[in-house]
Amino acid sequence: MAQMNMIEAIKDALRVELKRDPGVLLFGEDVGKVGGVFRATEGLQAEFGELRVFDTPLAESAIGGLAVGLATQGFRPIAEIQFVGFIFEALDQMFVQAARLRYRSGGRYNAPIVFRTPFGGGVKAAELHTDSLEGLAIQTPGIKVVVPSNPADAKGLMISAIRDNDPVFFMEHLNLYRAFKDEVPEGEYTVPLGKANVVREGKDITIIAYGLMVHTAIKAADELAKNGVSAEVIDLRTLVPLDIDTIVASIQKTNRAIVVQEAQKTSGAAAEIIAQINEKAILHLEAPVLRVAGPDTVYPFALIEDAWLPTPARIVKAANQTLQF
């Protein structure tokens, strides 16, 4: 197994699938010659040619629509939206045209498209580069939502997303791109969509997270352990489909839970998870399930983002509140 950071793992997944399936195309703004602003596609155009990996003119809606049109002709497009805030320009093509293609055609057409986008705060990027917009996607019928937290998962989930015959919104946290290296299996390694991962076992409380917040949750669990609290940490990996079974199994053991998300608090992934916990595990709960999230403001780029983003300390505080309920 090779040591890779998340960028390298994503590139490896793209290379494996470009090589395996001649229908896979990779395109977007600046993805070709230089390999994207984060170099996630570096070298792929040289390896697979300009007919497989190419730059497009600068227009996100057209990038999305191009993917839908190509999908109807048997291609498997991977469309990069350069930064998460730019998806607003492409919402119709991603969340309506791609997401509804199977329904609208009664299955005659489908959209095996991966919309890749970097997202997430803490990197001092420009405005509208680092929001967490997964809430928009999970409210949208017909599209899957994937948020990896580590290099191996990023590779395995990316290959599964590319092979999936429905559209996938694949969100790559900017602060994880080069955060650390880890062992990544070689070749056609897949992680199924819809299976969460218990990244740390515990018995007193369940902390549910995804993306970068998995690491923030682990730091909080380390702090809690110092006070003798054993926290279980679940990495959701995918928000649609959501692996509620793993969450429920954990709560049956711990009887307490909190959900951590980087996105604004109201009506997001955490709210949905708690609603499902209510439906399936309320009798196992000793305390209300709390959310640790960003406040309901616009994302404050750069200057005060570290104060805005959920911290281990806020998670510890919420966990203690739950434990002392």
């Binding site: 057209a62 629509g65 191009l66 049109g69 002709q73 119709d92 055609s105």
Partner: peptide, 25 residues
């Protein structure tokens, strides 16, 4: 053919993608 499009203009981009598919093939 594709299904009739309700969002004005969305189909313009689909035709563009379809045409790219023809050209690539």
């Amino acid at each position: 053919v594709l299904m009739p499009q309700i969002i004005i203009g969305a189909q313009i981009l689909h035709a563009t993608g379809v045409a790219m598919g023809f050209k690539l093939k």
